[in-house]
């Protein structure tokens, strides 16, 4: 409990730090906001096409499809605000010596290195778009408003964030062994875009790959599938188990990476 309040207070401090430094560089906030909105706009073209052609896949009407896309935007927003910039900085921290200082602190190194740089401009357009799409879908499809469903949805979103965190943390960690991992980072983050659409549109092999091997669909396909009542018990359990397993895996790789650093660096 004491540890939890300590970490929450630190999160608060990181947020405060972000806000204070943004006061200094106001333009950067708006620039990022505009750039992110444009990126979002280019992704919304997919939704536009879906509505335009009145596409129905596996019994999912366009509104149901936006439930998937919206959930994807919400999870991207969370990832973009808390983790994204930390992951891109990870490689730098080795070269600029900030890793050395971080190691000497009595605090979880992984926590410190992966959440300390927060950003609030990246998530705003994504979150707004995602929230609008999800609420709209919820209303038009007359989905259940029961607390169990809503809590379950939020629960699977949290698991989705955990899954995305674990998958996307791996490429920057690889840079402890190999010099450059930008190419891999690029490819892996491209993988998560598969979630823009319900997994039903993909062929069977891709579905299996994305559910069991690199469970990218757990990120943001599972929460809407849960709400639509399309997850059987086995999938429900796998949706909980996989993020935990992958998180533990990422944790082990993280520790190995730091170990590697400690034994070879100078």
């Amino acid at each position: 409990m004491k540890e939890l309040t300590k970490h929450l207070r630190l999160m608060g401090l990181f947020t405060k730090r972000y806000i204070m430094s943004q006061m200094e560089y106001r333009t950067s906030f708006f620039t990022i906001l505009i750039v992110e909105s444009l990126i979002l706009l280019s992704k919304l073209l997919y939704t536009a096409v879906v509505y335009n052609t009145d596409m129905v896949v596996d019994g999912l009407k366009p509104e149901a499809i936006t439930l998937f896309t919206g959930t994807f935007f919400i999870i991207s927003a969370v990832y973009g605000s808390i983790f994204m910039f930390n992951f891109t900085n990870l490689q730098n921290s080795v070269y600029d010596g900030s890793l050395d200082i971080a190691i000497t602190k009595p605090i979880s190194l992984q926590f410190y290195l992966t959440v300390s740089t927060i950003d609030l401009a990246v998530p705003i357009p994504n979150f707004i778009a995602g929230a609008v799409m999800v609420t709209n879908a919820w209303k038009t499809l007359e989905l259940s408003m029961e607390p169990v469903v809503i809590i379950g949805y939020v629960f699977y979103i949290i698991l989705g964030v955990l899954m995305l965190y674990s998958i996307l943390l791996l490429p920057p960690l690889l840079s402890f062994w190999f010099v450059k991992s930008e190419g891999i980072s690029h490819i892996v983050s491209g993988l998560s875009n598969f979630n823009m659409m319900p997994m039903a549109i993909y062929p069977k092999a891709l579905k299996i790959f994305g559910t069991f091997i690199i469970p990218i669909f757990i990120v943001s396909n599972f929460p809407p599938l849960f709400v639509l009542g399309r997850l059987n018990v086995g999938m429900k359990l796998w949706g909980i188990l996989a993020p935990i397993v992958f998180f533990l895996g990422a944790r082990i790789v993280f520790k190995k990476a730091i170990q590697k650093y400690s034994s070879i660096a100078n």
Binding site: R17, E24, S98, D100
Partner: peptide, 8 residues
């Protein structure tokens, strides 16, 4: 190597 946050 400074540990102080430069912008704050």
């Amino acid at each position: 190597k400074s540990q102080l946050w430069p912008d704050l």
